[in-house]
Design a protein around this nucleic acid. Structure first.
Lengths: 194, 194
DNA sequence: AAATAAAACTACACTTGTGTCATTTTTTGA
DNA sequence: TCAAAAAATGACACAAGTGTAGTTTTATTT
């Protein structure tokens, strides 16, 4: 497969991503992707053999891309509160950018295809994020910024709230101020008593 | 439609429910239901005209049934902690009884059919439950059992955690002790400082 | 520019699901 | 007990999706 083919494959994946964003996972057919890419039926089968395969490769692409959007803009002397707030703001943006995310498609996919818990990407992501937040809270406690008796619990609590907001957004819809209220509550419950 | 027909309709709905529990929403076809009910294709169409309609009626049936499973067993002199704990235990049971719930099907349905936020049943349920918890926490605070500066926030926080656990369970799977840890954390964060 | 290889196309055969309708079976009541 | 009504059946026509293969178009190489 030549260089040109690789380009085309990438083009198909990027176009297919848009389709998945728009229609979720289950509703998407080869025809949808063929039409979005403006290629022929047979042409698509030259590169991929099923929507499932395409979706998996889209996910792979996705996970390669959004590796380090975050690490960049943390100044070295930022307080734990600052960082936590930055993280939560980032999550808020992600949540509300609903029209550009694969969230629903990913849920649909995992409804059907549940990998062993051990190597479930969703679980890994969750655990990693929780670990990061935990460290963050621990730092904050050490510096006297936060009060918290169970940093791990608090971190997991935050993660579950974020999960809750995410699914709520997909089924009911959320407004920015709903997210703000949750963020506020989280920060307040970590704040030291005067 | 005679009495017998009504019986049969109910029978179909109950059987269809099992199918939805097993396969979710989108995957279910009329054929699946026909076979589960052991009736003929045409026969089913006599009662319902689409899987969507059947699903909606299943949901209606569901919501009529689980009205007051809870209110019953609260003794009049139970403390707020007791009641909250009972509520959370109930939620835990519900969560882990995954193999008998329509959770995934409901999510799939609302991915496709998002009603206006105003009359979205999911939102209503959420808000109502949050209100109940809020009152509960307020009672606890008044009696000196709980410490909480933002009862509404705390209530919503609990609800979002439960939502998070729910979707997590459908996509990754949870274990009883994961739920226990969350319940413990919630109770601890409401506990009065000594 | 001719020959070959690579890429793309389209039409086809197959599968699965839907909704309908002429017919058969069952129930009812006079 | 038998005629009419109600309920149930299953075969059919249709629609939408899949995967394939023979053919055509485009690109590459000598």
């Amino acid at each position: 497969m030549g260089e040109k083919s690789i380009q085309k494959k990438k083009y198909i994946l990027e176009t297919a991503r848009k389709v998945f964003v728009e229609k979720g996972y289950k509703k998407v057919t080869m025809k949808d992707i063929v039409e979005a890419c403006d290629i022929s039926r047979g042409g698509l089968y030259l590169y991929f053999e099923s929507t499932a395969q395409i979706f998996m490769e889209v996910l792979k692409m996705e996970s390669q891309e959004d590796d380090d959007v975050f690490g960049d803009r943390i100044s070295p002397d930022a307080s734990a509160t600052d960082i936590l707030l930055l993280f939560l703001k980032e999550q808020k943006k992600e949540l509300l950018r609903k029209n550009n995310t694969l969230t629903q498609a990913i849920y649909e996919y995992y409804f059907e295809n549940r990998p062993a818990k051990k190597d479930n990407p969703l679980k890994k992501q969750f655990d990693m994020a929780a670990k990061v937040i935990e460290k963050l809270i621990e730092d904050g406690v050490r510096d006297g910024e936060f009060y918290c008796e169970d940093c791990e619990g608090a971190a997991r609590n935050i993660m579950f709230v974020l999960e809750g907001l995410k699914i709520f957004n997909q089924t009911v819809g959320i407004t920015p101020d709903m997210v703000d209220r949750e963020i506020l509550f989280i920060l307040q419950s970590l704040s030291v008593e005067e």
